[in-house]
């Protein structure tokens, strides 16, 4: 068992979106991330799955240092990422890098690829030859050296994303956050980018937090999968177990909705579950379990008490009242 390099405990991020009331102004908050805990082992790929608005990207941005969490602690190799004085030290910025969803806005359109790649190099490797480092990075991601003179608008979306990956690698990070790195790309290019990411992971001993809403992709690359719904994690399990033995009704619902072609594939999926109801607004989440508006297995208790996150079998956690008792057996 490898060591946990990242520990997230009870992470919350609430955004104030508006104020109501004329005299006594009450803030209206969106609970983008509402009490999330997970660990990340060195060298693994944790897949973070969830529908739009479930808070996946907010977690990525908090880890990357764009936002301060409202509450909760994050430790990276035992160091607090958000200490009291606020500023994250440079050596932690070096270790944690992020690849964004939109390759179009990831690179500065007015600067060449070499100039784009030089930004992290100048900050984190001021004593090295920038030129040689740029060449090394381009070679690492299999791009021709001549690309350093090109401007981003001369590159395809996939190539831009590969340059964005190269820029993230410029600081020699040990942990990379991949925020839907392939969702804006052509399917033909997605495979290439995924293969590159997998090769880089084994060559450079990287740990990935891979955010996506593509379940089929998760199946191939994630060692563990966490599924999010309205700012909370519903279920975390090993990748293989996640697909063969899903426990949370939401996970079952998602997996049963994957489109397949043959009858043989159909048998591998959980029984079809028809979703009912609506996703509640993240501003106004109902009491009890947040999934109670759509859950096919809802019980009376679901409308009153928010279930705890329990370990239902080894390394397999779920947040559902169905497993309230199995905790002691396990």
């Amino acid at each position: 068992m490898s060591e946990a390099i990242l520990e997230v405990r009870d992470l919350k991020k609430h955004f104030v979106v508006d104020h109501i009331g004329t005299f006594r102004r009450q803030p209206v908050t969106v609970r983008a991330v509402d009490g999330i805990s997970f660990d990340l082992q060195a060298g693994e790929t944790l897949g973070l799955v969830g529908e739009s608005g479930s808070g996946k990207s907010t977690i990525a941005y908090i880890l990357a240092g764009m936002y301060r969490p409202t509450q909760g602690r994050i430790h990276f190799r035992g160091l607090d990422l958000f200490s009291e004085n606020g500023k994250r030290p440079l050596f932690l910025k070096k270790e944690i890098q992020i690849v964004f969803q939109d390759p179009g806005s990831s690179l500065n359109p007015r600067r060449t690829i070499a100039q784009n790649l030089a930004v992290p190099l100048q900050i984190h490797k001021p004593d090295k030859n920038i030129m040689r480092e740029t060449l090394r990075l381009l070679e690492l991601v299999d791009l021709p050296a001549i690309y350093m003179y090109k401007y981003p608008n001369m590159l395809s979306g996939g190539e831009k994303q590969i340059v964005a990956i190269a820029r993230a690698l410029a600081t020699d990070p040990s942990f990379m956050i991949l925020d839907e790195p392939t969702s804006a790309l052509d399917v033909s290019v997605q495979g290439k980018v995924i293969n590159l990411l997998m090769r880089l992971q084994s060559d450079l001993d990287l740990t990935y937090l891979f955010i996506t809403h593509d379940l089929s992709l998760m199946r191939n690359i994630a060692t563990r999968v966490a599924i999010m719904y309205l700012g909370k994690i519903c279920e975390i399990s090993k990748g293989s177990e996640f697909f063969q033995n899903p426990q949370h009704p939401y996970t079952q619902m998602l997996l049963s909705s994957i489109p397949v072609v043959s009858k043989d594939e159909e048998k591998l999926k959980p029984a079809k579950m028809i979703p009912t109801g609506e996703i509640p607004s993240p501003v106004n989440i109902p009491p009890g379990c947040s999934f109670n508006t759509r859950c096919p297995k809802k019980m009376d208790v679901c409308f009153e008490i928010d279930p705890d996150f329990v370990e239902i079998s080894r390394q397999h956690f779920a947040r559902c009242h169905l497993f309230g008792q199995t905790q002691k057996q396990g």
Binding site: L90, F100, S105
Partner: peptide, 17 residues
């Protein structure tokens, strides 16, 4: 709020840069 600015910020680039 474009990602290239955010990216420079979180890598530790100066305000001047």
């Amino acid at each position: 709020n474009e990602f290239f600015v955010t990216s420079a910020e979180i890598t530790g680039a100066s305000k001047f840069h």
